[in-house]
């Protein structure tokens, strides 16, 4: 059974997109056929992480959702962006970075039925094992639609007072929507913090499973989101740490 995983954070700047890209790379290395959907229609960037330039894109997820093209036309095989050869596959549905598309996407009523139809089609077309959906921050129509259809909801937060309070909103909502599985991820934890304590604080605040708490990685910051960390640094302890997350996601 293919698994749909929605990755969300209430506040921005939690490292959501970067984590999605790195997880996707690790999953493809583990032999999985992975779909990526960029539902961060407000400030899309997932395709940059896989070296897919706007000039090479003819159809976006935005076009699919407004029924201007098929899912197949907006699907890009980005497996070759991984170094060497990976046993799995990566198929990406990018979101448009064009100014007009973004304003339209933010303004219009989100067609949740179109999204509900789009993901099974992506799975079917490419025989996928897993679909990762990157969302935009905050409580919005599009994110609600994604949460309502997911198998696993991953909520990322930084150990920051603004994140802690806002995340309660998403957790509350996920429970009301009966999400089958809710997983928390602590991210970008400053080095002065004790990781285990942060994990415990997240657990006691939300009464949820905390899959992993990751330290702020200075090497990731200087990577400037043009590369995928786990690809550039396959042997790094940080990469090994991220791999443990796969056990939580592969059922």
């Amino acid at each position: 059974m293919p698994t749909v995983i929605v990755v969300h954070s209430f506040r921005r700047g939690t490292g959501k997109t970067s984590l999605v890209a790195n997880l996707a790379a690790l999953l493809a290395r583990a032999g999985k056929r992975v779909g990526l959907v960029d539902l961060n229609i407000e400030s899309p960037s997932l395709h940059y992480a896989f070296g897919l330039k706007d000039s090479a894109i003819t159809c976006y997820l935005n076009d699919v959702l407004r029924q201007a093209c098929s899912v197949e036309q907006a699907t890009y095989d980005v497996t070759t962006s991984l170094q060497g050869s990976a046993p799995g596959k990566l198929y990406l549905l990018p979101a448009s970075t064009r100014f007009l598309d973004i304003s339209m996407a933010l303004k219009g009523d989100f067609d949740s039925e179109a999204l509900d139809a789009c993901i099974p089609e992506l799975i079917e077309n490419n025989q996928l094992d897993i679909v990762l959906v990157d969302t935009r921050a905050g409580l919005t129509d599009d994110t609600l639609a994604a949460i309502a259809m997911t198998d696993i909801l991953c909520i990322i937060l930084r150990p920051d007072a603004q994140d802690f309070q806002g995340t309660a909103v998403t957790v509350d909502l996920a429970r009301r929507l009966d999400v089958p599985r809710l997983i928390m991820i602590g991210n970008l934890v400053p080095k002065t913090y004790n990781l285990a304590e942060v994990t415990k604080e997240i657990e006691t605040t939300y009464h949820c499973e905390v899959a992993i708490t990751l330290p702020l990685n200075p090497d990731m910051m200087t990577l400037s989101s043009a590369d995928i960390f786990v690809e550039v640094n396959p042997e790094s302890p940080f990469t090994q740490e991220l791999k443990t997350l796969l056990d939580h996601l592969i059922l």
Binding site: A137, G138, L139, Q162
Partner: peptide, 16 residues
Amino acid sequence: TDIASPGIHVLFGLSE
């Protein structure tokens, strides 16, 4: 005006 994901009130210690 960040209605979808407010946060600045936390910095001023304003609780829900």
